[in-house]
């Protein structure tokens, strides 16, 4: 069911980790779509399966213990899961690039930054070393690093600068899709704002699609077009950013928004969603959120919720609130 208008179309993806205590169902029946040039915010708590999904798209799920159990990842009309390892190597970096969480450790400490960018270029483009290094300096300039710093080692840069280098590496081969896994978590707020601004700017310039993995709704509001809310390995709500922020439908999404502190109110304590993330080796039956859900009915414990379109482009997986025709 390939769709030409979509850059990425993930269907019914399940990724399990088989460990001693049982099977961790990190991603379970996940559906996700991303159009050309769009930015998708991928929101969820720690352990919801965001990073596993990203690694799954890159086919980098550590195996063993990880295993893609079923599903399809259609990227530019081709199923990535059917590609050979050699074909995947040219996809990685060339067509899909990834930015990791911690810039402090995602650069090789013993190689100068220009060489690290050049390596990426040389792997995917037919250029000689000199051209690759020139391209590296161009990329550094693009992310706002002066050419005289090109021969420096990573430890000579600050955290924000390192993340700029990481972004330069990721974008060096003009990928169609950029996956940013919490790119600003390790940075302080002012640097966060700079890096986000830079990413938005470059995305516009290079017309790259982006998946922004985060648990910060503020970052989503700032950068994304669409949002997917993830809970216990599946997407529970998927919508345009405006729709999602104006009327969140899924009780979990509402809980997330409620837990944001209010500027005008004098709050002693933050509001929370009662309960904890379910144990991924032993997910509740039916809707995985039902034990924590204030709206749960008897059907929630038995019926595995399907995605239902509550308004155009706004999909919700909730048996109670997400019925067709129900106006939220």
């Amino acid at each position: 069911m390939a769709n030409d208008r979509l850059l990425l179309d993930i269907q019914d993806l399940s990724i399990h980790y088989e460990v001693e205590d049982g099977t961790v169902r990190a991603v379970e029946g996940l559906d996700l779509r991303l159009g050309y040039g769009e930015t998708l915010g991928f929101v969820g708590e720690t352990g919801a399966g965001k990073t596993t999904t990203a690694l799954g798209i890159m086919r980098l799920v550590p195996s063993p213990p990880g295993r893609v159990v079923k599903g399809e990842i259609i990227f530019e009309g081709e199923d990535l899961l059917k590609k050979s390892e050699a074909e995947m190597r040219s996809v990685r970096g060339g067509k899909i690039a990834m930015i990791f969480q911690d810039p402090m450790t995602s650069l090789n400490p013993v190689i100068t930054v220009d060489r690290q960018i050049a390596e990426m270029v040389a792997l995917h483009q037919d250029v000689n070393e000199k051209e690759a290094l020139e391209r590296a300096v161009e990329m550094l300039a693009l992310v706002g690093i002066r050419p005289e710093r090109a021969k420096d080692y990573p430890h000579q840069f600050s955290g924000g600068m390192k993340q700029r280098v990481v972004i330069a590496i990721a974008l060096a081969c003009d990928p169609a899709l950029l996956i940013a896994d919490e790119p600003t978590t390790a940075l302080d707020v002012t640097i966060q704002a700079q890096v986000l601004e830079l990413m938005k700017d470059l995305k516009r310039k290079l017309k790259t699609s982006m998946i922004m993995i985060t648990h910060d709704l503020g970052i989503v509001a700032e950068t994304c077009d669409k949002v997917a809310i993830m809970y216990a390995g599946r997407v529970v709500e998927y919508a345009e950013k405006r729709h999602l922020f104006l009327n969140p439908v899924h009780p979990y999404t509402q809980g997330l928004f409620n837990s944001l502190p209010d500027l005008d109110e004098d709050q002693e304590e933050l509001k929370t969603i009662p309960g904890l993330m379910p144990d991924p080796t032993n997910l509740p039956s039916g809707c995985p959120f039902h034990p924590r859900c204030g709206h749960a009915g008897p059907q929630c414990a038995t019926e595995s919720p399907a995605m239902v379109e509550v308004e155009p482009g706004h999909l919700v997986a909730c048996p109670v609130r997400g019925r067709k025709g129900d106006k939220p």
Binding site: M58, A97, S106, N108, H124
Partner: peptide, 25 residues
């Protein structure tokens, strides 16, 4: 370490990762 995973994510082969990224470290 993350830079090894990053190297994999840019499409480096295993041999390249071992000899260019891990051993020099």
């Amino acid at each position: 370490q993350e830079f090894v995973e990053a190297a994999r994510a840019v499409g480096s082969s295993d041999a390249r990762i071992i000899f260019k990224h891990i051993l020099p470290n």
